[in-house]
């Protein structure tokens, strides 16, 4: 598919280069400047074509919202904090880490899904637990609360109607700062896969 994209792009750029304003402008510019500019644009195209975005970053593949979405449902994560005085609050990770507003939800949801399906390795499980612990500590400090536990839920939502299909508890964590082993319980499905 990338080949077709490159052919369309080449046709567009060829057409653009063929226009009179561009041709006469090219004649009036220094060749070294033009080559430098062309090299930059070439690198941009190469980054898109190679599609190894994490390696070639910031020269990345630009496909976004480009696929047909035919999924019947999708999942979102709820992180719920329970305080010592019985309050129940929803933890918003973007409020804690605004820099990650574009990229945190997708990765975090994937991690929680993997935790729910028991697909996390021992190391991943440790990272997952530390992540929840860290978010709970941050949330408690920010809101001046004393937290008892943090629950992580996975909510399945119908893609078209927006109705909640299923709400599943993935894990419960001891949110007290002094606790060494933070995990209180995990979902029933954990470890069954």
């Amino acid at each position: 598919m990338i080949l077709i994209q490159l052919i369309i792009l080449a046709a567009l750029l060829g057409w653009l280069l063929w226009t009179r304003p561009i041709r006469s402008w090219i004649c009036s510019c220094e060749r070294k400047d033009l080559l430098f500019g062309a090299a930059i644009l070439g690198a941009l195209v190469l980054g898109h074509a190679l599609d190894f975005s994490r390696a070639t970053f910031p020269l990345v593949n630009w496909s976004m919202y480009t696929e047909v979405n035919a999924e019947d449902d999708f999942q979102v994560v709820n992180v719920i904090c329970h305080s010592d005085d019985g309050q129940q609050k929803s933890l918003n990770p973007i409020e804690l880490y605004p820099s990650l507003c574009h990229c945190f939800p997708a990765r975090f949801t994937a991690l929680v899904k993997a935790a729910d399906e028991g697909k996390l390795t021992e190391n991943d499980t440790r990272i997952y637990d530390r992540l929840i612990q860290s978010m709970s500590t941050q949330y408690a400090a920010r809101h001046g609360m004393s937290l008892k536990t943090t629950r992580v839920e996975l909510v399945k939502i119908d893609s078209l109607s927006g109705a909640t299909i299923e709400r599943k508890l993935v894990s419960v964590h001891d949110a007290r700062p002094a606790s060494k082993n933070s995990v209180v319980s995990r979902s029933a499905t954990h470890g069954n896969h």
Binding site: M1, Q5, W62, S63, Y65, T66, N69, F74
Partner: peptide, 23 residues
């Protein structure tokens, strides 16, 4: 242009006629 071309080639007509946007 990359995004637009990728949307046409990857999604095709289905992307504009189906329920993708609602989803």
């Amino acid at each position: 242009a990359f995004v637009g071309i990728a949307r046409l080639t990857n999604g095709g007509v289905e992307l504009f006629l189906g329920d993708t946007i609602q989803r």
